[in-house]
């Protein structure tokens, strides 16, 4: 059986993906900060699906820890899900530099450093897959959320390049762009019900798409078309809109 490594395993989408892959007979290595909080969750997965689940204390923004963490990881995973994310209110992100940098680090630069290391290993092994959770917010910068959006845009571009590079070694890279999802991250936001998915729906989409070798997944599917329309609006008009 294969092992999936999940970075940012405490996010609601990551937890749902853990369930989906475990049900599909995959072992799990779950990495997060204060990972002890996941002990109930891990034990639950072991009982439900009869799989191995290991927990790893890991801080993605501590770049120096990436290499020792990965070297100590046994067995090595066949797949990696990058689910770390950080979203603060736009007003906070544009006013406080530490919030800006935190947003960029957790959603982009630290992810890139980590996945570079994974990519080098997978490329050498000529196997594996990488799934990165980006966001529809990265498809176009909007005044309400553009620092987070910019970081996710960078991450999407990175995954695209990585996919291009690793294609030759048979390593699959998938970009996931969720729209509105009902999670801790969006708690308290007034999301339109008809457009808002549950984490388990996103997770099912991810599992199915990864197994089919999809490159860019919009989840739910209609976001592909919503974002197509949003990207088509001329900038001269877009700048006047309240989005």
């Amino acid at each position: 059986m294969n092992t999936l490594l999940i970075i940012g395993a405490k996010s609601d989408i990551a937890k749902a993906v853990a369930h989906a892959y475990a049900a599909n007979r995959s072992h799990l290595a779950l990495a997060a900060r204060r990972v002890a909080e996941l002990e109930h969750f891990a034990q639950d997965l072991r009982i439900r699906y009869r799989i191995n689940v290991s927990l790893h204390e890991f801080d993605l923004s501590d770049i120096a820890s990436h290499r020792p963490f990965y070297d100590a990881l046994h067995p090595k995973p066949q797949g990696v899900l990058m689910a770390a994310g950080y979203m603060t209110e736009q007003a906070q992100a544009q006013r406080h530099c530490d919030e800006t940098l935190q947003t960029i680090s957790v959603n982009f630069s630290a992810d890139v450093c980590f996945l570079n290391m994974i990519a080098n290993d997978f490329e050498q092994r000529r196997e594996g897959f990488i799934v990165g959770i980006s966001s529809v917010a990265g498809d176009r910068g909007r005044q309400s959320n553009y620092i987070y959006g910019a970081a996710k845009a960078g991450f999407s571009a990175y995954l695209s390049g990585l996919r291009n590079r690793l294609y030759a070694s048979g390593v699959h890279v998938m970009t996931v762009k969720p729209g509105f999802v009902n999670t801790k991250m969006t708690a308290g936001m007034n999301l339109p019900k008809a457009l808002t998915a549950q984490p388990c729906e996103i997770a099912e989409d991810i599992l199915n798409a990864q197994q089919r070798g999809v490159d860019v997944l919009y989840s739910k599917w209609f976001w592909r078309y919503i974002m197509l329309v949003i990207r088509c609006i001329p900038e001269s008009l877009f700048k006047k809109m309240r989005l």
Binding site: H40, F41, Q43, D44, I47, R48
Partner: peptide, 16 residues
């Protein structure tokens, strides 16, 4: 909503 323990030999299930 967690399974906490399952003793499959004696049929004892501990759940949240």
């Amino acid at each position: 909503n967690y399974f906490l323990d399952f003793d499959e030999i004696n049929g004892i299930l501990h759940v949240a």
